[in-house]
């Protein structure tokens, strides 16, 4: 198991390096004009500019610059945000947390809704409820997350049930711990739901397909021939096998969530990595842009690794193969 993890990590390193290279090259395209822009900005002191020129050795050959940049990455020295006037690392950490909360909430919501729906649809195949679920799923997975967000916000504004964006209410500071938690949930509801609608549609279909496939397997017949109660046949024998392939999707889903989350964050005014990146791009805050970009890649890798480990734990065939 440990060797398996190590192997996965080792494979990830060239991937990360590749991403770093891509980021670096992209940065090169803009830094030139960017620094000129900076020099003309009276608010930035010449000392700051000099400090960063020295730090990033902009006068040295490209390869050295790249290696230095990578070294700085490891030191969590991501550069300086000129828009917020603080080192990038300080802003990213907080926003990262918020994006994570949103992604996690949406992820949980997706799985808690899609899995039972998929099982239900498979068990009542081709009957009315299955058809209804299938139709809703289809619409759901074709709906872009930003549209879901807008529609939900519209409904909320009409009914006044939920807050219209943001992460905290005005009186957040005065609330008790429980109050704060509930307040967070209320603000989380719309963006998490908007993000989930698409994933639920997709995941439900996959779950249903897997269940149908699994229920046709020989070992399900054996389980029935043993006289086991139908619930055990479905939920222990069939489900355990049907769900395995879905675990591999976990990591990819996480990355997709990060991407999709950005847009929903922007629409719902949720202070996460996405809104940060947008502000950065709009204000040409280069280091912030690139740092967010790298962060996205790292999170994807982590998600993948997590999914692989989970799969190895759950499916003994894979565990022993490695």
């Amino acid at each position: 198991m440990f060797r398996y993890c190590l192997k996965r990590l080792l494979i990830s390193i060239p991937l990360l390096l590749g991403m770093a290279l891509l980021t670096f090259l992209l940065m090169q395209k803009t830094t030139g004009s960017f620094y000129d822009q900076l020099k003309m900005d009276p608010l930035i002191s010449p000392e700051t500019i000099d400090r960063y020129i020295r730090l990033y050795q902009l006068d040295k050959p490209l390869l050295t610059q790249f290696l230095l940049w990578v070294r700085n990455l490891f030191r969590l020295e991501f550069g300086y945000s000129f828009y917020y006037n603080v080192p990038v690392v300080k802003i990213i950490a907080g926003r990262l947390g918020n994006t994570f909360i949103l992604s996690f909430a949406s992820f949980l919501l997706t799985w808690l809704v899609a899995i039972p729906l998929g099982i239900c649809a498979a068990l009542h195949r081709n009957r009315m409820i299955d058809r209804v679920i299938q139709m809703l799923s289809y619409v759901g997975l074709s709906t872009p997350s930003f549209l879901s967000a807008m529609l939900l916000l519209y409904l909320a504004s009409r009914t006044g049930l939920l807050p219209l964006g943001g992460m905290h209410s005005a009186r957040y500071e005065d609330m008790t711990a429980l109050g704060r938690f509930l307040d967070l949930l209320r603000h989380l509801a719309i963006p998490a739901a908007a993000l989930s609608i698409r994933s639920v549609g997709a995941l439900q279909r996959i779950m249903r397909g897997n269940m149908l496939e699994t229920l046709r397997q020989q070992y399900v017949l054996t389980a029935r021939a043993k006289g086991l109660p139908e619930s055990r046949v479905v939920y222990v024998h069939a489900l355990r096998n049907a769900i395995n392939p879905l675990i591999t999707l976990l990591g990819y889903e996480f990355s997709a969530l990060l991407s999709g989350a950005a847009l929903v964050e922007i629409i719902c005014n949720w202070p996460g990595l996405g809104t940060l990146m947008l502000t950065a791009v709009r204000s040409k805050d280069i280091y912030l842009v690139m740092a967010s970009f790298m962060m996205g890649g790292v999170l994807f890798l982590v998600g993948n690794l997590f999914a692989d480990i989970l799969l190895a734990r759950l499916d003994p065939r894979i565990r022993y193969e490695k």
């Binding site: 991937l15 991403m19 891509l22």
Partner: peptide
Amino acid sequence: MRVCEMFMMVPGFYLLLALRSV
């Protein structure tokens, strides 16, 4: 394929924004 994976690995929206800023 490693190169492909690298491209697929990056969250699309972020790459979109990053490239757009260029």
